[in-house]
Design a protein around this nucleic acid. Structure first.
Lengths: 146, 146
DNA sequence: TTTAGTGCAAAGGCTTTGCAGATGT
DNA sequence: ACATCTGCAAAGCCTTTGCACTAAA
């Protein structure tokens, strides 16, 4: 049986836009397309440069504002690593994951471990703390850089 | 039996200074004293303000540069949380710990869990990744803010 | 038509740097 | 003496904002 309605990222985005009385624009649609088909962990600048190929007149601020909007409606996460500029990660229909980050080449490897997740929740509870979200980043040397 | 030589943070700092051909100054000693007796997770600005009490002529850049020096010689860690300004945590003779961070009051609670640490190492190894360091931050609501 | 969005440029906010004078060694 | 350190101010760097114009609804 198949009673489920499939919601694409675009559906979610358009719904959000409508509910909030915002407007859908050429730029928004284009940013959505490029963002979801680009490399994960993209910076504003990288996305801005990609956008200019198809929408040459686009402004940096527009890209930036729309990435914020994507975070707001739950379709992206902002990742800040040390002093690096912010990176944005698409978030759609996938479980939470952590990152292995290579300190030589900068690569992000996505991993997840349900045991660690559970222990984290226990750790929070043991401190009378209600966990909302978490970030785990392991820095080291990746296979290729050894 | 007691053959161990006790190294204070100051010993380590002075050794590092000497080895590198750097110089010990009035400001450095003062910053070391204040930093290690101040609240953990202090910002440059907070430390700068505290420093001015005993060393009124001190400059912001001096505080900043010496915090970097402390990180360099392993006596401090820089912590960056989202868009907040950098915070510095004294690191001396204590095991690694993670943070529970209250999203209401901003409080940092230090916690550690050896099981999680072990699983993190396994997770890294399973990905052919040599772990060097890691950060785990759990955001949520603390006891007092519930 | 009305109100939100865009693009530009300027402003912010924190971090970092250049430099002349002061200061350890 | 000589190289490092300091304090100041300026520059950097990324992010955010103000504003006049454009364009969804």
């Amino acid at each position: 049986m198949e009673h489920m309605i499939k919601h694409t990222a675009k559906d979610i985005f358009r719904n959000y836009i409508q509910e909030k009385g915002l407007r859908n624009t050429r730029q928004r649609e284009a940013i959505l397309d490029v963002f979801f088909s680009a490399d994960k962990h993209i910076t504003v600048e990288e996305l801005f440069n990609k956008m200019k190929i198809t929408v040459p007149e686009i402004g940096y601020a527009t890209v930036h504002r729309n990435l914020s909007l994507l975070c707001e409606c739950g379709l992206a996460d902002e990742i800040k690593i040390g002093k690096q500029k912010a990176r944005y990660e698409p978030k759609f229909g996938q479980e939470h994951h952590d990152h292995l980050i290579c300190i030589k080449c900068g690569k992000f490897i996505e991993v997840s471990d349900s045991k660690i997740e559970k222990l984290q929740n226990k750790l929070a509870e043991a401190n009378d703390f209600i966990p909302v979200k978490h970030t785990l980043e392991i820095f080291g040397i990746c296979r290729e850089c050894k």
